[in-house]
């Protein structure tokens, strides 16, 4: 019997190594696998590359990892947010490398990694600072920039529900980067609010097929309003 569920966050993160590239789902606070990130903080891996849309705020999540000096590089589209002081301090001190990627290119490069593509030509960023030094090509009268896939050793994803095969259902706009990051991680670790018996998730509503998921851990979300 295949059961991808593990009982604890620590078990879910087993094997995470120093120097790992970690994708983290979420946009703002929606869809951020907060407990898995807390687990990375506790686990101790350092010299990490974090791939996420934002770079965390306050003293929790990605911001806590950065604040603890465990992150070497951030690949993201929008690191500057209210309360992103840990990022700002480390970045200004020259202790943190930033690869700033337009959000759609971030998504497309993650998709390229998950889809086995060698590279993509994207029109986004052509003629701007973010494409400086990159190969370009005119295709059918339009200018494109060559961009490479973004690979990750581990993808940390938050979904709403799963079954033991790893099929995933998301909730509202918390879906955001989850489905594409789940495809791009060499090991994909998902936290969900519920794990339903096999056969009870409507197959028509499954967004991420279990083939992309390696481990699932249930984190009940007691804080969420019933609405």
């Amino acid at each position: 019997m295949i059961d991808k569920q593990v009982r604890t966050v620590a078990e879910a993160l087993e094997g995470l190594q120093d120097g790992a590239a970690i994708m983290i789902s979420g946009f703002g606070e929606a869809g951020v696998p907060a407990e898995l990130i807390d687990g990375v903080v506790a686990q101790g891996a350092c010299d990490l590359t974090i791939i996420s849309n934002n770079a965390g705020t306050g003293d929790v999540g990605i911001a806590a990892l950065i604040g603890a000096g465990r992150v070497r590089k951030v690949i993201c589209s929008y690191p500057r947010m209210v309360g992103s002081r840990h990022f700002e301090e480390r970045y200004r001190a020259g202790e943190l490398e930033l690869e700033l990627v337009p959000q759609g290119n971030l998504a497309a490069r993650i998709q390229a990694a998950g889809s086995g593509l060698g590279a993509i030509f994207t029109p986004t960023g052509y003629g701007t600072k973010l494409a400086e030094g990159k190969e370009t090509r005119e295709i059918d009268g339009r200018q494109y920039v060559l961009e490479y896939p973004i690979q990750a050793d581990v993808a940390l994803v938050k979904a709403y529900k799963a079954d033991r095969w790893g099929n995933l259902v998301y909730r509202k706009a918390a879906r955001n980067f989850g489905p594409i990051m789940a495809m791009a991680g060499k090991t994909t670790i998902v936290q969900v609010e519920d794990i339903d018996p096999l056969g009870t998730l409507d197959p028509e509503t499954v967004v991420t097929p279990g083939i992309f998921v390696d481990r699932i851990v249930r984190i009940a979300d007691a804080g969420k309003a019933a609405a």
């Binding site: 589209s77 690191p79 500057r80 992103s84 990022f87 337009p102 959000q103 759609g104 986004t124």
Partner: peptide, 10 residues
């Protein structure tokens, strides 16, 4: 300034 681009270029 801390650079941030989001979805503007896309």
């Amino acid at each position: 300034a801390i650079p941030a681009v989001g979805g503007a270029m896309d």
